[in-house]
Computed example of a mutant assay.
Amino acid sequence: MAAELANFEGYVNRVIPFKTVDGLELSLDVLYPSTKPSSPRPVVIHYHGGFLVIGDRYAFFPSWLAQACVSRGWIFVTPDYRLIPEVTAHASVEDAVDAYQWVLKSLSSHIGIELGPVVLAGSSAGGFLALTTSVTVTPKPAALVSIYGMLDMANERYLTKGSNIFGLPVFDTTKIKQSLTELKQPVLSAYPYPADPSSDPRMAIIATLHIDALFPDYMTGISGLTEKVINEGVEAIPASHRSLYPLTFGDVGDLPPTVVVHGRNDSAVPAALSEVAVEKLRTAGVSVHSEFPDVGEHGFDRVAGRKLEQETTGELAAPSFQSLRNTLKTLEQMVAKAAARPS
């Protein structure tokens, strides 16, 4: 249990393992009412960010979303998942799917509360996992929420060499790439956000994957895939790996109502990724509510903390934070509609 999930009034926080793979135990945190409610409770599952390379259940923690769940009597869940490059993104997605399925099948018996509609949400890389999981699973979640998500991994951002994240300088990545050829163990399901990102080796990996456009290689485990896609187009991605590119190859027409939030000045994950997603989902017939505040740097929502809905003046009066309030209002409506549908 971490401080981020402690001291929510009227709520209990528990850490529960949901799977073991190759001897590695993966867990999730559950925040749920301490007094058993008389009716089913909606659930929000949030996948953390970290470019699939770093992060844990407490990194980039959306306190505002957890507080919103508490204020509404909902249940909040946040799971870990295996990180690249020790494994491919297929393992990350598998863990995200397994966490969702575990919640549907087992969470109620662990906490003694009947579950209502289940929502999938994610920030940054977690947005990618929430989208990909939603495309993969049956039954579908009641709603999907992406917060500055890495939604379009076939976007030119991940196929163009020569730029770092957050406008940081480009550097010689030779040594980092050499270390990647030797990086197989241990497999990590969590890596706390470093106190000093500038000297952290995994932050250097993230920078390298951007600078040399190596995400396709390390997400799939196919060396040289980026070059093939650059030269031949997305059709160069083998069929067995196309599930990692749901906006390009997946059937998105049966996705649930979706909310997309992304600041237009995001210097880590371009808002264009979310704009492409919104267009493709709407074209496929999916109901999408989008929020694109002009100012909303990557991770901007963390500043809101638990005060988002209680304080609406000063810094929290900014349009970026109003976009989060709009998100919650829309999500509440989506959940209410899902709860009213016959089971």
Score class of each variant (00 low, 15 high):
residue 187 V to D: 04
residue 204 A to P: 03
residue 190 A to L: 08
residue 213 A to W: 03
residue 188 L to V: 05
residue 205 I to E: 02
residue 187 V to W: 01
residue 181 T to R: 13
residue 182 E to D: 10
residue 202 R to Y: 12
residue 195 A to W: 03
residue 198 S to T: 13
residue 171 F to H: 15
residue 185 Q to G: 07
residue 216 P to V: 03
residue 183 L to I: 01
residue 188 L to E: 12
residue 188 L to F: 05
residue 183 L to G: 01
residue 185 Q to Y: 10
residue 203 M to R: 08
residue 184 K to W: 11
residue 197 P to F: 02
residue 191 Y to I: 14
residue 210 H to T: 05
residue 214 L to E: 08
residue 175 K to W: 14
residue 185 Q to T: 15
residue 174 T to M: 03
residue 183 L to Q: 04
residue 209 L to N: 08
residue 193 Y to E: 11
residue 182 E to H: 05
residue 184 K to G: 06
residue 216 P to W: 01
residue 177 K to W: 05
residue 182 E to P: 00
residue 187 V to I: 14
residue 185 Q to R: 13
residue 184 K to E: 13
residue 176 I to E: 10
residue 179 S to G: 10
residue 180 L to T: 01
residue 186 P to E: 08
residue 169 P to K: 13
residue 196 D to N: 13
residue 194 P to M: 11
residue 176 I to R: 10
residue 183 L to A: 04
residue 211 I to Q: 09
residue 198 S to F: 11
residue 188 L to H: 07
residue 205 I to S: 00
residue 176 I to Q: 11
residue 196 D to F: 09
residue 204 A to C: 08
residue 173 T to D: 12
residue 207 A to L: 09
residue 198 S to I: 01
residue 170 V to N: 09
residue 211 I to K: 04
residue 177 K to A: 00
residue 187 V to N: 09
residue 173 T to C: 15
residue 196 D to P: 12
residue 185 Q to H: 15
residue 188 L to D: 01
residue 178 Q to C: 01
residue 206 I to G: 03
residue 170 V to K: 13
residue 190 A to M: 12
residue 172 D to Y: 06
residue 208 T to C: 13
residue 208 T to S: 10
residue 204 A to M: 03
residue 184 K to Q: 13
residue 169 P to A: 13
residue 211 I to S: 00
residue 215 F to H: 05
residue 200 D to N: 14
residue 171 F to I: 13
residue 192 P to N: 03
residue 214 L to G: 05
residue 184 K to N: 14
residue 197 P to Q: 06
residue 216 P to M: 07
residue 188 L to S: 08
residue 206 I to V: 11
residue 169 P to F: 13
residue 193 Y to C: 07
residue 214 L to F: 04
residue 191 Y to A: 11
residue 173 T to M: 10
residue 174 T to H: 08
residue 199 S to D: 03
residue 169 P to M: 12
residue 191 Y to E: 06
residue 186 P to H: 06
residue 214 L to N: 03
residue 200 D to P: 07
residue 177 K to I: 00
residue 194 P to V: 10
residue 183 L to C: 07
residue 209 L to C: 09
residue 190 A to R: 14
residue 178 Q to R: 14
residue 199 S to R: 07
residue 189 S to W: 05
residue 183 L to N: 04
residue 193 Y to N: 11
residue 200 D to R: 06
residue 205 I to T: 01
residue 197 P to C: 02
residue 196 D to Y: 10
residue 206 I to F: 08
residue 196 D to W: 00
residue 213 A to L: 06
residue 176 I to G: 05
residue 213 A to G: 06
residue 191 Y to H: 13
residue 212 D to V: 02
residue 204 A to T: 02
